[in-house]
Design a protein around this nucleic acid. Structure first.
Lengths: 126, 126
DNA sequence: CGGGATCCCAGATGATACTG
DNA sequence: CAGTATCATCTGGGATCCCG
């Protein structure tokens, strides 16, 4: 996924395509807001405004933007209830829940090494 | 980690501090280049120029910048060999290897759902 | 309420040149 | 070779307003 070496053989064309697609997806998904949104959703079904409240510091724009992107990639289901005022609900798809598991482990990791990291920073900043 | 609700009680002060630190670390680490660097290093010890070659599309500046950040957080060890020309090698620390495991699973996830995501995108883009 | 469109600025990033 | 500094550029992202 990270490598750039391919032979010129034609059967590598598929690999190269898959690889660049993987990179594209990775670039979409590996960003702070996207991961925080996925983490915040968990197993719940949440409204736009609920997500906004759950995720500290996210702006209206970043939330919509990232939700669109996640929807496009099939990680999030968007359900519009035709009421007035409108009620829009978001939930993770199966693919989204799969990704959430890896985000969970990243959060676990963060807490596990919190102390070490804090120490390392202090040392570095001198 | 994602929640923003705390009571005003004093014993929550620690929690709030840990929480904001966790968020900070998460923001550092949850970005495309940092994760690609970690993934590229794997179990190897790599020189600056080797990393640059491994990671498609990364600029000199982004690489140094992210390496500094990873070093500061204690995820990467930097070894300077006092030769001429200089030889600088990078390797993951224990904490870094821990994070790499979660990045690995994220890569696995990407490949697992590659097809689904491609389909979802096609549907969405119409 | 959810979300699109617009404006605008700070900060991210690339290109280039210079140093030990 | 690795790293820093500078400059130019461009994009991310916030603020705001309007619409269904």
């Amino acid at each position: 996924m990270v490598t750039k070496q391919f032979s010129g053989s034609p059967e590598d064309a598929d690999l190269r395509r898959a690889d660049s697609l993987a990179r594209e997806i990775f670039s979409d998904v590996a960003n702070k807001w996207a991961l925080l949104i996925i983490e915040a959703m968990g197993e719940h079904t949440l409204r736009f405004s609920e997500l906004r409240n759950e995720i500290e510091g996210i702006s209206h724009k970043m939330l919509t933007q990232n939700l669109r992107m996640l929807e496009r990639n099939g990680l999030v289901d968007r359900t519009v209830h035709p009421t007035v005022p409108p009620r829009v609900e978001y939930a993770l798809t199966e693919a989204g829940r799969g990704l959430r598991r890896t985000v969970d482990s990243m959060c676990d990791w963060t807490h596990q090494y919190l102390g070490d990291i804090e120490d390392s920073r202090r040392r570095f900043d001198t």
